[in-house]
Every structure is written in structure tokens, then in C-alpha cells.
Amino acid sequence: MVAGRISTGVPGLDVMLHGGLIPGRVYLVKGSPGTGKTTLAMHFAMAGVANGESVLYITLEEPAENIREDFGRMGFDVYHEDFTLIDATPTTEHYVLVEDFFETFAKNLNKLTESIKEQFRVRRYSRVVVDPITMLKLATKDEIDYRRAFLTFVKSMMRLKVTVLITSELERTDIEEYLVSGVIEMKLLERDGKLMRAIKVTKFRGSGFDNVIRPYEITETGMVVHPDRTVP
């Protein structure tokens, strides 16, 4: 690992990033459903756990029990004491809980920002995952309000000096791409009648990066990027 960088947990992707992510910044992973955004996010989270860091993972779409089951089967240490998984999905079960994580974390982007800051008063985290931010954007009717809220989110996370990875399923992520420090795009392409996965880094402030579209795979043990190959 290059000095001053932190691992994404995906060795081939670290190569594309010339050594990994710059800590203390906010990064966006975008792609259509099924591209593996949550898998990449889990690699990022588990790389922090493996490094002795405390990690906060907020799921806004996939129930926590599904995440633990699926990624536990792949060999990820999803029950580690340094891994905090908060289920903020809008399912009916949450309305009978004493603490309603959907209302506190996922009602809107400002709520999410304040709830994360509240978590930091209890425990110091070095990595945070928000997966995905899509529903929060769709729930905000006024575009100007969302832009203002997203700017507040980014500034708040940088003040906390935490490395944040957010995922999005939307093709148009204008304000997010403008304000974050890096953008990683995951795609499903059709080649000779077969689906192929491709990844590219479209933005990485403060560093050079590999701007070639590279193939990747989702295997039984996670994500594998091939930084020495090109997409035909």
C-alpha cells in the first residue's frame, strides 16, 4: 500500500487508483442494479476492519439480514465487533422497533448527516458506507434543497475526517460527481451476446489514476478487478 493511501479492499482497483484512496474524503460508486456496488462497498468496509479500524455501514435498500447472510457466505467477517451495520431500509418491521432507523437515517439527507454525526459521539469511525444514496435523492422534491443538503453532507464528513463511500444507482449524479473527491463507475456491457462487467475511474482529486476501462468479475469470494486487461 502506498504511503498516505487506504485500500479499497480490491487489489486491482487499488492499482487503478495508483495505490488506493486518499483518506478523509467522500467517494461515489455509481452503476445500475446488479453491477456489484454493494460488493465493492463491503470490500471497502472489511478492508478497514482488517486494518483495525471501526467501520459504520448504513444500508438504505437491502435489509441487514440479507447483507449479513450473503456476504457472510462469501467469507466476509460481517459480525466483527468493529463493523457496525445499521439497517435503515423502509420495511414494515421498523415501525415496531423502539428506535426507528428509517426515520432517523433515511427520511432525508439532512437527517442522515445528523444521524451519522450522532453516531460519532458514541464511537469514532474511520470509514463510513452509505448504500445507496439513491432513495434519499428521489425523496427530495426540490433539486436546490438536495444540492444544499449534499454539500452539507460532504462538508460534515470532511470535518469528521472520515473516509466515506456512497453508492448510487442513478445515471445522472451531477451534484454528487461535482462535490465528491472521486468517482468510480461500474457497468454491464454486452459483448458477443454475453454480459461483461467493466469498471472505470472517472475522477480522483489529488492523484493520477488509470483512466482505462478495465474488466472485473464478481466471484464466490467477492470482487476481482483485472488492471492489466482491457475491455474488448
Rank of each mutant, 00 (worst) to 15 (best):
F153L: 08
I6V: 14
A88N: 08
D210Q: 09
P11Y: 01
A50G: 07
V225P: 13
T8G: 04
P227W: 09
R197S: 09
E69V: 02
I144K: 12
S7V: 03
A198Y: 01
A64H: 06
V55W: 11
I86V: 15
P90T: 06
P215I: 12
R191C: 02
L109F: 00
H80R: 07
S32I: 12
R214I: 11
K161Q: 07
R123F: 03
G4K: 06
D210S: 03
L170W: 03
G36L: 12
E176Q: 13
T92N: 13
E65L: 06
V225M: 14
V26D: 07
K117D: 07
K194W: 01
L17I: 02
A88I: 07
E143S: 10
L112V: 02
M46Q: 15
E65T: 10
M186T: 06
V10M: 01
R214A: 10
S32N: 11
R172E: 15
A41L: 10
L40D: 14
V10L: 00
V180P: 15
Y27C: 02
M1E: 09
D192G: 00
R147F: 08
A50H: 11
F120C: 05
E143P: 03
R68S: 06
P33L: 10
S126Y: 00
D131T: 00
E69Y: 09
Y95G: 11
I86P: 11
F102N: 14
F83E: 09
V55K: 11
E217D: 15
R147W: 09
H94T: 08
S156D: 14
F105L: 01
P11I: 06
E169T: 05
S7G: 01
R123S: 06
E103L: 04
T59N: 12
M135L: 09
G72H: 08
Y125K: 00
R197F: 05
Y57A: 06
T221S: 15
A198I: 02
V49M: 10
S168N: 00
Y95L: 15
M135Y: 06
